[in-house]
């Protein structure tokens, strides 16, 4: 129905408002958190780890907009400083699995046969274990800390990306332009990484955005269990965990870091949706 479709402008960048809005909101939220992370020393009104017995468990006030926790630390400052750690977790926790998974998936899908079978069985084995159990055992072996968390994330998280890309490559490698590339004498790596991958990757990018949220939450979960970020460093997940015992008396300790996680997650998912539209995943 060529008559019915709205033809895009030659550049394809002029978008309708309904498409542009999520992009603006998502990118805006992420930019806001990024600026907050960079400017934390300037923006934060107090030292995030300085304990003060005189100001324990104060509800939100003009002096402490987010209130204080059981050690008398200013929660607003802790949330602001926590942005640094949490953005880092979301970023590194996604980038490594993304890169590893994409390369493995492309190779498995393109070559097929025994290579594909080996990688796919490996993925099956990894998927056979509950995600968190596998993560925790790897971290337990490597010792607690953020870098162990990143390594564990890379070792476990790549499987979803590999499967996603492989499925795309399997379809695309039979497309006419891939066959044309073979018939024109192009090398395998050129076909894989210049012709197939750019057309296959859009879905993964969108998935990575929603995965960032999951990574953030597993980072919080791991920290909650004492294997990730170590106190007294400010991290949203740890802060939520710390507030748990005061939830009935001092709700603000849990609420504000929790809200921050929700906001960042919302920003990522909006950006993911917008990128999906932009990269033509839904076409």
């Amino acid at each position: 129905m060529s008559a019915g479709t709205v033809s895009s402008s030659p550049a394809g960048w002029r978008l309708r408002l309904s498409q542009r809005l999520p992009l603006v909101i998502g990118a805006g939220i992420l930019l806001f958190f990024l600026l907050l992370a960079i400017g934390a020393p300037v923006v934060a009104p107090y030292d995030p780890i300085l304990q003060n017995g005189a100001t324990r468990l104060q509800p939100p006030s003009l002096l402490h907009p987010f209130g204080t926790d059981n050690f008398g630390r200013d929660l607003l400052s802790r949330v602001i400083w926590g942005t640094r750690i949490d953005l880092q977790i979301a970023l590194i926790g996604v980038v490594f699995p993304f890169v590893i998974g994409t390369i493995v998936g492309t190779i498995a899908g393109f070559f097929g046969g025994i290579v594909d079978a080996l990688f796919m069985r490996l993925i099956d084995i990894i998927l056979a274990f509950p995600f968190l159990v596998l993560m925790l055992s790897i971290i337990a072996i490597l010792g607690p800390g953020l870098s162990s968390f990143y390594i564990a994330m890379a070792l476990v998280g790549w499987v979803s990306y590999a499967r996603l890309i492989r499925a795309q490559i399997l379809v695309l490698k039979n497309s006419d332009y891939a066959v044309a590339a073979v018939s024109l004498g192009f090398g395998r790596f050129r076909i894989m990484f210049r012709h197939l991958l750019p057309n296959a990757i859009a879905g993964s990018i969108v998935f990575a955005m929603s995965d960032a949220v999951l990574v953030l939450l597993s980072g919080a979960a791991v920290s909650y269990l004492g294997l990730g970020v170590q106190p007294p460093v400010a991290e949203w997940g740890v802060m939520v965990a710390e507030g748990q015992s005061f939830i009935t008396t001092a709700w603000w300790i849990t609420l504000f870091p929790g809200l921050s996680i929700v906001c960042l997650a919302f920003g990522f998912s909006m950006l993911g949706d917008a990128l999906g539209e932009l990269l033509g995943v839904h076409e």
């Binding site: 006419d176 332009y177 066959v179 018939s183 024109l184 090398g187 210049r194 012709h195 750019p198 057309n199």
Partner: peptide, 28 residues
């Protein structure tokens, strides 16, 4: 060389026509 049935599917949608042609010339 081969010419395919579906003209839209036969060209890499991410490359401009110039890039597509130049690549063939470069590889050959």
């Amino acid at each position: 060389a081969m010419v395919f049935q579906d003209p839209f599917n036969a060209l890499n949608p991410r490359l401009t026509i110039g890039q597509t042609l130049a690549e063939v010339l470069k590889v050959q």
